[in-house]
Write a protein that binds this DNA or RNA. Structure first.
Lengths: 210, 210, 210, 210
DNA sequence: GATGAATGAGCCTTCATTCAT
DNA sequence: TATGAATGAAGGCTCATTCAT
């Protein structure tokens, strides 16, 4: 999984350690606020207050409110990536790996549902330019599954045509996202375990015939 | 497909015909604006101007900016419903009907992609109360596919367990939505026809074994 | 009691009977609204609705919202005058007449408290020009008591110097007004009868020594 | 004279000294504007401009336009209190004290006539809740005279029955207010000195027989 | 005469951002 | 580095008044 370049956000402060620390505070505060009130209804004052410092200080570490949104999206993606990497088991067939990856992915999506939803709903508020960085991350996650599918294709454990790989990877990712943004209905009818079990077996049925 | 009740938006104007006409103008203007700039960045003045009348007149037909968003969401859903209904063929098996419905649904989603996206991204800006009306519509669409699946189950043309019906309906709807909100990637790799063909065959493979 | 000239308010309508009728409707509706919400917070729409006709019709009988306020003030003053005139007894001494007049005046003020207050609080919203007409009415009421005092002075029943007459008249009128605009405190401690009794005896004590 | 609690108006600014200073500027500017144009016809922009800062800054020190009105009323009352306190002479009989108090009170009312009028005419524009604070001040002033009357009653210098005390205190206060809100007529006929002399002697005549 | 839809100036308030300390 | 007071453009909404029907 190749890492996408980050967007560099200028800061008035020199010390990189401090920048990192402060931005962590900002993100932690902002995530909660964005989730509960949305990006537009959250004020910079609220962000600075919840971050534990003044509005002036906030602007020492960012250049605009939208930077905070970028920082937040980026941090969320980082978390997702961490969760995905933990799931990877080596020395097994692509099929086995896929099953584990889907299960792990759905577990991560379940834990991060509010954050996933946040990205989906607020991404459009990013400047066109910045949005690309975030979309790239999204693509990265898709390619995570693409790679597993490829591996299974090569080792013969998965029965899938080349042109189908990309789409199937999308399907899997959407499976996870749908658990977050259709939760109002899905939760009423299925537990995470049930959901995982059914969706996994549908996918594997398609790809292995079993 | 049972119709959900609409939220009644009070108007200062008495003539219902006129209300309908003006609200159509409002919706037409607002959809474009919301799609291109987003709900929050669109001003009420812009809406009124694009609708062809003054800000005062706009407020004769709505009570708040959020009402416009509701009107827009409602109109979009109505269009979707119309599209879906046209697709229904009678006197055929559930399986055949499902295939046609998916194709038709994807066609509709493709035509309305911007609008579908709009609903997904701005729905959270609706007052909690109003949001329910819009979510109900969303559920309605899902149940459209649920009913087809049920019919196929009964006539034996579809092989699906009862508890799976709801989830499969969701899967199908998400299939359509994903064509709109992952278009940045899907379009690069698949045409609508390819997408339809692959997804339909995956679904039918799951449900008919063929 | 010489009548002050009224301000003439132009109307689009020719029939004077109709004008009078409509304006009565307007006043009746507006008084209630002004009392409960104040002049500024009452809209012309509300006035027309409460009057029983459309906003367009309202403006056939007035030229501005302030005209309504004038109409209202004028009607209230007319009522007060009517009340005062009823109180006048002839063929008695000035002292007896004064006692009766004060009692009657206080009764009228008690009955019309909300309206009296209304004039006091909203009079400043009248155009400078129009305000004069209303102030003149106020002066008229004062001179009502002035005349009684004069009569008592002449017939020897009241012991009062000429230059004191005007001030005493004012004092009496203010006595009545104070029952309306200090009611939040006076009502807690005195009934109208007690209030009347005390104030009357204070006045008469000053003017007759008894 | 027991002090009534003030209504606390939240401010975005932390420094209490600065808050006080800025609010003084606001009050100074707003009093003039309210007197000349009335509360409703004065805009917040005018207030901020006349205060010497921007509209944004104005709202750092208040939460709503009505807060300004409260601030203004409160400041006026404070001035009145200061004026009243200066008038108090100790070590004298209640009767002597009363005479001095009335004279002082009328002098204060004369100096502050526009402001007194302002309170009377705009108090109703305050939120019900806030109005109570202002009314309490009004009561406070009445009780200032009540106390003097009580003292005179106790030391035998004033001849007044207990139940009459409250009403007489009201009468005195109204005497002062009437000098402001009937000035259009009183000024034409009496100077402040004449007015004071006559009213004082009427009161004292009632209370001492002299 | 009556109606009521249309108008738009103008109001109060918010909030991202700056900059002197 | 940190602070927080100051700024003012901009936004949502109201309402007195007009005028075509």
């Amino acid at each position: 999984m190749r890492m996408e370049p980050k967007k560099a956000i200028p800061s008035m402060v020199k010390d990189p350690k401090l920048i990192e620390k402060r931005r962590e505070q900002i993100v932690e505060a902002a995530v909660e606020l964005f989730i509960s009130k949305g990006f537009h209804k959250t004020t910079t004052r609220e962000i600075s207050r919840a971050s534990g410092f003044s509005i002036g200080t906030l602007y020492e570490y960012i250049e605009s409110k939208e930077d905070v949104l970028y920082l937040v999206c980026d941090a969320i993606h980082q978390n997702m990536e961490r969760g995905l990497k933990e799931v990877l088991v080596n020395g097994v067939s692509g099929a086995v790996m896929l099953k584990a990856a889907i299960e792990g992915f759905l577990r991560v999506m379940d834990e991060m549902q509010d954050r996933v939803l946040l990205i989906y709903q607020e991404i459009k508020s990013l400047p066109k330019d910045t949005m690309k960085y975030v979309m790239a991350k999204e693509e990265e996650i898709t390619s995570f599954f693409e790679e597993i599918l490829h591996r299974g294709r090569k080792d013969g454990s998965l029965n899938i045509d080349e042109p189908l790989v990309k789409l199937m990877a999308h399907n899997i990712v959407v499976l996870g996202e749908m658990w977050t943004f259709r939760r109002w209905s899905l939760r009423k009818n299925y537990t995470l375990e049930q959901y995982t079990e059914i969706q996994t077996s549908l996918i594997l049925h398609d790809l292995t015939g079993k």
